[in-house]
Structure formats: C-alpha cells, structure tokens
C-alpha cells in the first residue's frame, strides 16, 4: 500500500519536473516551424544582414540588421548604466554599509525589481525622454540613449541582488585569513572577496543582460520605434522585441511578415539561450576552481 502510494507520488513529481521540458520543446518546435517559411522568401544571410526592414512595402524587404543594431546599442548602453551601478551598490551593501543602511538599502533595491516594466516605460516616456530632449537638445527624447538609461536602471536590481548574494556567500574565514596576513580592507576586497564571488558576479551581469535584451514593453515605449539603421545613440530605434510586439497584431497569420517576426523571435531566443548557457558554464567553471564540487 505504502510503496504504491510512494510510486504514485514519485510519478506525479516526475511529470511535474518534466513539464517544463515539454513546454520548452513545444516553444522551440513552434518557433522553428513558424519562422522557417520566411527563408523561402529571403535568404538567411539577407535576412540577418539586410539593412532595410520594410515588411509592408511592395516588394517587401526583410532585413533585420537595423533591429539587431538597435537591440545591440540599447543593450550595450544599458550595460554601461547597470553594471557599475549594480556592482557598486552590491559592494557598498556588502562591505561598507552599516547594519541599518543594509536593512534599508536591500529591500529598496528589491522593490525596484518588482516594479512592472510598463511603469518603467511610463516613467521613461513622460519624464526621462522630455528631460533628455531639453537637456541634450535632440530632435526626440524617445531614442536609443533613453532606452538604455531606463533599461539600465531596470536591470540594476538583478545585478545588485545576485552579486550581493554571492559576495555574502564568501566565507568569513577567507576575509579573516587575509586580514591576518596584514592585508587592508581594499586588498581583501579586490584580491579575495571579489575573485571568490566571481561566478555569482558574472552570472548576475549575464542575467541582467539577458533581461535587457528580452525586455519588450519599456523599449517599445521609449526607444522611438524607427526601424532604420541607427547612426548615433540619439537616434530613435526599434529593437527586435518591440518590433515583434508592435507588428504582430497587424501581420496576417501565415504571411511572410508573420513568419519574419517569428524568425526574429527565434533569434532572440537563441541569443538569450546563449547568455544563459554562458552564465551556467561560468558559474560551474568557478565552482570547479573553488573546489566546491569535489
């Protein structure tokens, strides 16, 4: 009786555990099935490197380079914002902040993570964009720069929270050993604490990046939406995610445009997959170096 019950419970949990694998497979199959037909219309090379995205023109052009470039610039800009700020606050919270400050700062940063992305979009659209437009005297505040800024702020909690966790996992004994050898606080931080938590720090940066690349609502609202090759970071742009969100509704199901949007989705999926695998790989590599999985 008991052993049968156990078997059933085991079976239920096995099914639950493998359910996400099933979903993943389903998504991959759909992505491939729906995106492959576009390559009958346009060659893979032209699709990726084509500089013109005019899916509704006659004849249509399906070059997604402007979208990739937009995603790239927005992400790169956002990383410049979120990495120093995110790591800086993690180091401050972990090493310098008093107990009281820590109690205030950590929850605040985590609240920042809980704000829905549409609110960030709002904030970017109504406050940051007009402000930058006036300040920098640019034609439109809705541009790659603004998107970078807003997305960068949005990704700070991901970077801070994960890297602070990994900093706080560094055993106190490492720090004590370092101090006992006559090292000062900065030497200890730079030569012992940071290297020992490198896996968590790099994972946090990659996951922050993957969040930025995949973010849709905010970029749709603040990036300006022009699907042309950006010449500067102050140009309006249309990253891959916002292209899909903006155009999926108006493309006829089964049309080449529809398949092209799926193909963009597939590329996004592959990019974030690479980031996540890289994050996993890095944290494993450092774990081996730390000798923790002996």
């Amino acid at each position: 009786m008991n052993s049968q019950k156990e078997k059933i419970i085991k079976l239920i949990f096995t099914i639950l555990a493998f359910a996400s694998l099933l979903f993943l497979l389903g998504i991959i199959i759909v992505l491939f099935k729906e995106s492959l037909p576009i390559f009958k219309e346009v060659k893979l090379h032209d699709f990726i490197f084509g500089k013109h995205w005019y899916p509704t023109y006659d004849p249509p052009e399906y070059g997604i380079m402007p979208l990739i470039a937009a995603s790239f610039w927005v992400t790169a800009g956002a990383m410049i914002v979120c990495v120093p700020l995110g790591l800086g606050s993690a180091l401050y919270i972990n090493e310098i902040a008093s107990f009281r400050q820590k109690q205030i700062l950590k929850p605040i940063i985590e609240i920042l993570a809980g704000i829905p992305s549409i609110v960030y979009g709002f904030f970017g659209m109504l406050i940051v964009a007009p402000f930058l437009q006036n300040l920098l005297n640019i034609p439109s505040g809705l541009c790659a720069f603004t998107a970078s800024l807003v997305l960068g702020i949005m990704a700070i909690p991901t970077v801070t929270s994960l890297s602070e966790d990994s900093l706080s996992f560094v055993p106190k004994s490492f720090k004590e050993a370092s101090y006992a050898l006559g090292a000062n606080r900065w030497q200890t931080l730079i030569k012992v604490v940071i290297p020992a938590s490198m896996s968590g720090i790099s994972t946090s940066v990659i996951l922050g990046m993957s969040r930025i690349v995949g973010e849709t609502m905010t970029v749709l609202m603040v990036s300006g939406g022009a699907a042309i090759m950006p010449k500067s970071i102050f140009d309006p742009v249309r990253p891959m995610t916002s292209t899909i969100a903006a155009e999926m509704g108006e493309s006829a199901v089964g049309s080449p445009h529809y398949h092209a949007l799926f193909a963009i989705g597939l590329i996004l999926f592959l990019v974030t997959l690479i980031f996540n695998v890289a994050a996993e790989h890095i944290s494993k590599k450092y774990r081996v170096k730390l000798g923790l999985n002996r």
């Binding site: 004994s173 490492f174 050993a177 006992a180 050898l181 006559g182 030569k191 000798g291």
Partner: peptide, 26 residues
C-alpha cells in the same frame, strides 16, 4: 603576529598564490 585558524582556510587560489598573497599585499 601571524594566525592559524581553527578550520583550515586557504584562499580559493593555487598553492603558490596562497603563500605569495601575504607578500603581495605587503
């Protein structure tokens, strides 16, 4: 005044780096 702790606490570095550490920070 050097110190040896209750639990061995080498740094997650190589044997060489562990010993060189005290010299480097000084």
């Amino acid at each position: 005044v050097g110190m040896v702790f209750q639990k061995p606490n080498p740094f997650p570095k190589t044997i060489f780096q562990n010993i060189a550490y005290g010299l480097e920070v000084n």
